[in-house]
Simulated scan of single mutants.
Amino acid sequence: MSRIRAEPLPLDELIAAVSHPGAGGIATFLGVVRDVNEGRSVTLLEYEAYGTMAEAELERILSEIAAEIPGVRVAATHRVGALRVGDVAVACAASAPHRGEAFRGCRLLIDRIKERLPIWKREHGPDGPYWVGWEDARCSGEDGHEDAHGHAHGHGGTAPPGSAGV
């Protein structure tokens, strides 16, 4: 089971998707919107995704983990749209015959989702909105400051990866 969705995430559906008689352990992970990130106050997060690509990549991740860990079953959902502090942004579940494999499967799942899914996060706070982790690839500056082209880098960016940056 994998889904990119705007609706709240159903943890019970994820658990049901990985449950089976041979599962001796089920591990879950919920990624929740917090009120501070890197010292900045956060009031709202907006997630945007390249939907079909994100779904396909999530399916690849699930297949990889199932092939790497014998007996593991994994499922995940990631939310898009506007989320408030306390909302669940991502939910993962993994089952296996033993708890160690279930924990490992769940950890691999969230780590690979964070690394590989084409999903972008825009945080809102007292200083206005900013894209998290965005850096304008057209410019060589790496220090998070504006360069000679007038583009901001790092947290100062105002657009997701691949956008015009205006």
Rank of each mutant, 00 (worst) to 15 (best):
S2H: 10
R3G: 10
R5W: 02
R5C: 15
A6F: 08
E7P: 05
L9F: 06
L9M: 13
D12S: 10
E13W: 00
V18C: 04
G22Y: 12
A23K: 12
G25V: 06
A27N: 01
F29D: 00
G31D: 02
G31L: 00
V33N: 01
R34H: 07
R34F: 09
D35S: 04
N37K: 04
R40N: 12
S41C: 04
V42Y: 10
V42T: 10
L44D: 11
L44C: 10
E48W: 10
A49I: 10
A49T: 11
Y50N: 10
T52A: 15
E55T: 14
E55N: 05
E55F: 02
E57H: 03
E57G: 07
E59P: 02
E64Q: 15
E64R: 13
I65R: 01
A67I: 14
R73E: 01
R73P: 02
A75W: 02
T77D: 09
H78G: 02
R79D: 02
V80M: 10
R84N: 14
V85Y: 07
D87N: 06
V90Y: 00
C92S: 00
A93G: 00
S95M: 02
R99M: 07
G100P: 11
A102P: 01
A102H: 07
L108F: 11
E115P: 00
P118W: 08
W120L: 03
K121L: 11
K121R: 12
K121G: 04
R122W: 07
H124C: 06
G128P: 07
P129F: 12
Y130V: 13
E142W: 10
D147T: 12
A148H: 09
H149D: 15
A152Y: 00
A152P: 03
H155L: 12
G157L: 04
G157T: 15
P160W: 12
P161L: 12
G162K: 11
S163V: 13
V166D: 11
